[in-house]
Simulated scan of single mutants.
Amino acid sequence: MGSPSGPPFDPDDPDRARRERDTEPIPRIDPDDGPGYGAGPAYGAGPSLSGDAAFGDGPGYAGEGRSGRAWSRDPEGYPEQPISEEELAGLRVDASGMAPRRVLPLEDEPSSLVARYLFPTERYRGEWKRHWIHLSTPIIVGVAATFVLGYLSGFLAGRDVGALTTVAVLLWFAVMGWVAWRVADWWYDRFILTNKRVMVVNGIITRRVAMMPLVRVTDMKYEQTPTGRALNYGTFVLESAGQEQALREVKNLPNPNELYLRVVEEMYEPQAVEARLGKEADEAKADDGA
């Protein structure tokens, strides 16, 4: 049998202690070891290359290591204790106990006007009429026509020209009929969101249905003029990878910021929407049972 390599053991060797110290393994520091892990002398003078600490982004990093647990660091770069679930929950609510960012509540069922355009495996997320500012032109025209034609018909009646008075009255009825048509068209005009697409349905006699799949939306933005910011409406612009777009610009939609968050969440976090809806359904059932 061969002898082990290296010099023979000598208890009187003066360099023995130095060699043992130099070959001592570097201790590993595990975040799960308990109170010994934290800022201060117990951590050591330099960064550790073991455990989750080796995968941080340097001083000031706050995130998750390989273990998936959330960690925070102080300004000096030393890790602190992991963030608990209670602390993470506190980040999601403000001092009043409400969530810092709320989206519009989801409607339970589509209206009969919209339901006919949805297929069975599609999940309905909401429908919105355009902001009332969409009717500003018809309303202004109707009010102006009432004052002008009312004054004109009274003036002509005093001049004993009955034919012209009748024409003025008929013209007023025609203008008000056009205003009523525009109001009805606004009532049947809907912007619809599902888990698969966005749609715009409008028209009274001739129905027009435009849609765009969410998977094809490459960019989306909304624009608000100063008046739009004051009255809370805006214009949505949807960009798609295709050349021909049936739906690109949707004007005068209400609550544009909340609606924008709703669409973006449906595009990028559909699981979060499903989880929220499931939680709301469970809470509703619990309330009904109580």
Rank of each mutant, 00 (worst) to 15 (best):
P4V: 07
P7K: 03
P8K: 04
F9W: 05
D10Q: 06
D10W: 09
P14I: 13
A17H: 04
R21F: 04
E24F: 08
P25T: 08
I26F: 05
P31G: 00
P31I: 07
P31H: 09
D32W: 10
D32K: 09
D33W: 11
P35I: 14
A39I: 05
G40A: 07
P41E: 15
P41K: 12
Y43E: 00
G44T: 08
A45D: 07
A45V: 13
S48I: 11
G51M: 10
D52H: 00
A53N: 03
F55H: 07
G56Q: 05
P59L: 11
G60C: 06
G60W: 03
G60V: 06
A62D: 08
G63R: 06
R69W: 14
P75S: 12
E76A: 13
G77D: 01
I83V: 12
E85Q: 08
E86A: 14
A89K: 03
G90T: 02
L91E: 02
L91V: 08
L91N: 08
L91D: 01
R92W: 10
A95G: 03
A95D: 06
A99V: 13
R101H: 10
R102T: 15
V103M: 15
L104Y: 04
P105Y: 11
D108R: 14
E109H: 15
S111F: 09
S111L: 06
V114S: 12
V114Y: 03
A115F: 09
F119M: 11
K129S: 13
K129G: 13
I133Q: 01
H134V: 08
S136T: 04
I139C: 05
I140W: 10
G142Y: 02
V148M: 15
L149C: 04
G150H: 03
G150V: 12
L152P: 00
S153N: 05
S153M: 09
F155I: 11
F155G: 04
R159V: 09
G162A: 13
T166Y: 00
V167A: 07
V167C: 06
A168I: 02
V169Y: 02
F173H: 06
V175R: 00
A180N: 01
W187S: 13
F191D: 00
R197T: 01
V198C: 02
V201C: 10
N202Y: 15
R207N: 14
R208Y: 11
V209D: 05
V209H: 07
V209E: 01
M211V: 09
M211I: 07
V217S: 04
D219K: 12
K221N: 07
Y222Q: 04
Y222G: 00
E223D: 14
E223N: 11
T225W: 02
P226D: 03
G228C: 05
L231Q: 06
N232A: 14
Y233M: 07
V237T: 14
S240R: 04
G242H: 13
Q243I: 12
E244P: 04
E244R: 14
L247I: 04
E249V: 15
N252T: 14
N252L: 15
L253K: 03
N255M: 13
N257R: 10
L259G: 00
V263W: 08
V264A: 12
E269L: 14
Q271G: 15
A272W: 03
A272I: 10
A272C: 03
E274H: 09
A275W: 06
A275Y: 02
E280H: 01
A281H: 02
K285A: 15
A286P: 00
D287S: 11
D287T: 11
D288K: 11
G289L: 10
A290E: 06
